[in-house]
Design a binder for these strands. Structure first.
Lengths: 131, 131
DNA sequence: TCAGTAAAGAGAATCATTACTGTTAAGGAG
DNA sequence: CTCCTTAACAGTAATGATTCTCTTTACTGA
């Protein structure tokens, strides 16, 4: 019984899982603030850290100075938009594996694509010559 | 000629390129401090940022809260040791590509392995049952 | 030599994150 | 139901990496 129930903790995890973006701590805080007016940013950080240590969630990496979280702990590649900062899940055709050698202990293999997301690609006029 | 020569800037780049680790700004600062006693940490950051914008160097990512830099701008996978924080270049057998779809503009594909480096693997006793 | 301007140093400012402190309340024991 | 222990919380101070500002230094070209 070292982890008591908490409505706020549950809300944090639920929000993270209900969303396909990969929020920052502050984004979660802002989203939950209306529902929990007395929510503290520290609480969000503390619970995210606890979930991370549990393995309940994963950190995607740091984008624009902010750590981004992912409710899906399965190993899957991400796409980071260099313009708007969006982090999206992507699917890749083949399986990705890399073996650095027998002396290493590999825990995970993270693949991160960087570039412009569909929305930003459209705005830049790189694609969509039609119309 | 909007970029003048600077001994310190050159030293920063040279140090970065002479090393196979992937240093943090502070590591570079500490290393150069004996040779340039009046070196300022701000100067290191300023020049690293300039090189990054030039494309002269690349950022590997944030490890333990610190940004790590790489003098090798070619796209290649990295291994991050979760214990000692070492960042190493690794070679992988096959080519790694991922195509998220035609609406995306992909600039780069970063592959990062995480786990224990050979030294830490040895210490943990995971490998090397011999001896 | 002199003007113009890039580079650097020092330190303040910023921003995300973490730690501390006092308070509240969950959950088990009686 | 009440008491007790202690996790969880809000609020806020502290931390630490990075950036910004301001002033000084020192190239460079005329």
């Amino acid at each position: 019984m070292q982890q008591r129930y908490s409505k706020k903790r549950e809300a944090i995890l639920e929000l993270l899982r209900s969303v396909d973006s990969h929020p920052s701590a502050d984004w979660i805080y802002q989203k939950l603030k209306p529902e929990f007016p007395d929510l503290s940013l520290g609480t969000v950080y503390r619970n995210l850290a606890a979930f991370r240590d549990d393995g309940t969630l994963a950190t995607v990496g740091v984008v624009a100075g902010q750590d981004r979280f992912d409710g899906n702990t399965a190993e899957h590649p991400h796409f980071v938009c260099e313009k708007c900062g969006a982090v999206l899940d992507v699917t890749v055709p083949g399986e990705i594996t890399a073996d650095p050698g027998p002396d290493y202990t590999v825990h995970r293999c993270d693949v991160t694509l960087k570039g412009l997301c569909p929305a930003c690609t459209r705005l830049t006029g790189q694609a969509d010559p039609v119309k």
